[in-house]
């Protein structure tokens, strides 16, 4: 039971980590908590259902479920990235030099708007994500793991590794880190700040789309309000790991997922959603800047 819960925790934790990365990257660069991020995740889940529906209608899903899933996933990512790009451009960029509270309120507004927009266009009732993979688990060493769990774990780890490579190795990644440290100086070194900020939103939203898509497959049900709780938990994961820190968001996501699964298994699953915040409170009492947060006071 213990290892089984850990395994389930890693699956959910990978998803939390993917969403948390979007929060932490945007915070690292703009010091803005993008409250609309959970909604992008929710839209990713809906787009998944829509595209899978299209591929089922043209018969592709029947021929090759994996191909249909990968294609739908890619399309969701592209669309969600466009959403993220547009949200930043329309709702945050005009407020770039405004007091910090203004973009925060704008973010809450975007979040409410997107929820209602999806509720009106897709309906308020739950939508079902079709079962495409074998649901019977594979048994080994007393553990049961489903194909879908393997898929989720592999995809999350792969994307995190790619993101890490991107930020540490590429020219744009270096520019991103430079912008996070000192925007004025970065622009004087020939970096187009606006473009770097756009890329940050595009990547963060793309990761959220993957998370939304995979969760929709995992739980099978999607609703316009799923972005709220997932967003707030992923935000907790980002804070837990140290907001602004990319490895921190990954670590925070996994810790949150594992603790939640263990607590749900051993204590009570009714309080499942509360454990995330209990952990958050405990860690922040001991390490106010999060596990991997910057210890110096270089951020006011």
């Amino acid at each position: 039971m213990f290892f089984q819960q850990i395994l389930n925790g890693i699956t959910v934790g990978g998803v939390y980590a993917l969403i948390a990365l979007g929060y932490t990257m945007v915070y690292g660069i703009l010091e803005l908590i993008n409250f609309a991020h959970g909604e992008i995740y929710m839209i990713g889940a809906y787009l998944g259902i829509i595209f899978i529906g299209i591929f089922t209608a043209i018969g592709l899903t029947e021929q090759s479920p994996l191909l249909a899933v990968l294609l739908s996933l890619t399309l969701s990512v592209i669309f969600c990235s466009a959403y993220g790009f547009a949200v930043e451009k329309l709702a945050y960029r005009p407020l770039r030099n405004a007091p910090k509270l203004s973009p925060l309120i704008s973010a809450i507004g975007v979040s409410i708007f997107l929820q209602n927009y999806v509720m009106l266009s897709q309906g308020a009732t739950d939508k079902v994500f079709p079962q495409l993979f074998e649901t019977k688990g594979i048994e080994f060493l007393n553990l049961t793991i489903t194909v879908l769990q393997i898929f989720i774990i592999v995809v999350s780890l792969l994307l995190m590794e790619l993101l890490h490579l991107y930020v540490m190795k590429t020219r744009t990644g270096k520019a991103m880190r430079a912008v996070a440290q000192d925007k004025t100086m970065a622009s004087l070194l020939g970096i187009n700040i606006d473009w770097i900020i756009s890329i940050t939103f595009i990547i963060g939203s793309g990761l959220a789309a993957v998370a939304g898509f995979m969760v929709a497959m995992y739980y099978g049900l999607v609703n316009y309000s799923i972005g709220y709780i997932a967003g707030i938990k992923a935000f907790a994961a980002a804070v837990l790991g140290g907001i602004g820190s990319i490895p921190g968001a990954m670590l925070g996501g996994f810790i949150l997922g594992i603790v939640e699964s263990l607590a749900a298994g051993y204590l009570s699953s009714e309080y499942k959603d509360a454990y995330a915040f209990i952990i958050l409170i405990i860690i922040l009492l001991i390490k106010p800047r999060g596990l991997l947060g910057k210890s110096s006071g270089d951020r006011a």
Partner: peptide, 20 residues
Amino acid sequence: RIFGKMSVLENVMIGQHSRS
């Protein structure tokens, strides 16, 4: 105004951003 959290080499490589 150097990028304190990066290596000396990386700081200079960022300077080459617009030329690469």
